[in-house]
Nucleic acid binder design. Structure first.
Lengths: 128, 128
DNA sequence: CTACAACTTTGAGTATGCTCTAAGTCAAGC
DNA sequence: GCTTGACTTAGAGCATACTCAAAGTTGTAG
């Protein structure tokens, strides 16, 4: 996560205005870091910023929003499962296609055998 | 895939100009469809359009580009594996967090027991 | 004292991948 | 003949998520 991104996240309300050093520089607490890690994990799995904002807002309202937040996480977990399924399908497809390319390359090697045998280096290397 | 997307793919060279009916409408052959399916599968797993263009170009050059194309697919397969790993990590994290929310909700239910017992409907429904 | 690096701000700019608009053509049904 | 609907085109517009620019402040090192 770049500094740019951190500021952006603060701007759009994903993180509360964070503590500052005396010179005005941001200081992230361990709690901030944990929250940022969570955000990063959600973004990395394609949760839209909008959804993350919604979650962040509920979080600020405290325990009363537990059910709603849990729903968001459950929905996202389903989305993740769907993504995994899609990726696995593609992974399998690629395994097939790659195998096929290897076959094609084999055929090409047979049609175009090496015409000029590589020179064998017959110089005697001096024993070191 | 929408008609818009199909035209967009044709425009950016992902598919060769496709056959037309007499009225000028596009007619997709089975080969076209298979290729489009493949494209869709790659996009759905986050291959950038750029990479797909590169692959499509090589494909038009024929078997001589087999090695290069295979490399693209192998790289993408690695990318997919990485994505799966990331998603699985997030999935596990969410399982934990969701379990935690359930605990929190349990506590809230204990702190705020149902004060007004729900009315029990004592009317005798007429037997149908 | 000065230079430099590293942060600060607001607001604009960019990359990606569609997605839509406007104006036009065509074939079928009434 | 006229309407309707589905397509056609070129080009503009948009959503998302950053990413950067410009101008300014601050603390440290030489």
């Amino acid at each position: 996560m770049t500094a740019h991104t951190l500021r952006y996240y603060e701007r759009v309300g994903l993180i509360q205005p964070v503590g500052r050093a005396r010179n005005g520089h941001r200081r992230y607490s361990e709690a901030d870091e944990a929250w940022l890690n969570f955000l990063h994990c959600m973004r990395a799995t394609n949760m839209p910023i909008r959804e993350m904002q919604r979650y962040a807002q509920l979080r600020e309202l405290g325990d009363a929003t537990s059910l709603e937040r849990r729903k968001i996480l459950e929905d996202h977990q389903s989305a993740i499962a769907a993504q995994i399924a899609e990726l696995q399908k593609a992974h399998a497809l690629l395994t097939h296609k790659i195998a096929n390319y290897k076959k094609i390359e084999q055929k090409i090697r047979i049609q175009n055998p090496v015409l000029t045998e590589p020179e064998i280096d017959c110089t005697l290397a001096p024993a070191s």
